[in-house]
Amino acid sequence: MDLSILSALNEERLSRRATILVTDTTTGQQRLVRKGDDTATDPLADEFSRRFRSGKSGMIEGPDGASLFLTVSVPPPRLVIIGAVHISQALVPMAEATGFDVTVIDPRTAFATEDRFPAGKLRAEWPEDVLKDHPLDSYTAVAAVTHDPKIDDMPLISALTSGCFYVGALGSRKTHGKRLERFRAEGVSDAQIARIDAPIGLDIGASSPAEIAVSILAGIIKALRKEPEPAAGVA
């Protein structure tokens, strides 16, 4: 491997960007593919998109019969919870147990206390201030659970425009209807709006805060691991 490729690969990994290193194991030739590169004319484009989703490295046969090894690097999944509420207290340990890197953001210092949340997971600041330094990306899930548009709206819109793999918002259908009106007024497209999981979580009849946390986490894992379902009636 040439040092320039190794160095580029490490830089992408540090910046939480997904890459695939393609190695011809016979000749040693290599190239680095970044997620988001234009691969329209690449015969391996479908393979790349499957690999970016699964995150699994492996051998494949190239179009000309070459033995290729794909080293797939995807960032560890991250969960950003907007709102240091009762549901979040249940959700944090569950999400950590399933391998997520979790951050809870809530500017309301009555909620965001270290008595209620493990130190290091909590940011008692406005979402816009936290996300400025730690931007959202496609390997991040966002669950907004404050019900307060002043706190939830900005990170939800940011999650949609950053391509977060899961975007969920707590609230009744009525609350969500008003949210959609605000988002449309902000210029968010219908296709983006359709990606919001609302009412939040899988429909398992969850009732207690811990049960709702289970349904949210299940929705997030489903979004991470399963192919997206075809959008229903959305242009």
Binding site: M1, D2, L3, S4, I5, L6, T23, T25, G28, M59, F69
Partner: peptide, 12 residues
């Protein structure tokens, strides 16, 4: 199966 490759400091 293990692939072993040299890391080279030369420009590509």
């Amino acid at each position: 199966g293990v692939y072993v490759e040299p890391v080279t400091a030369n420009a590509a």
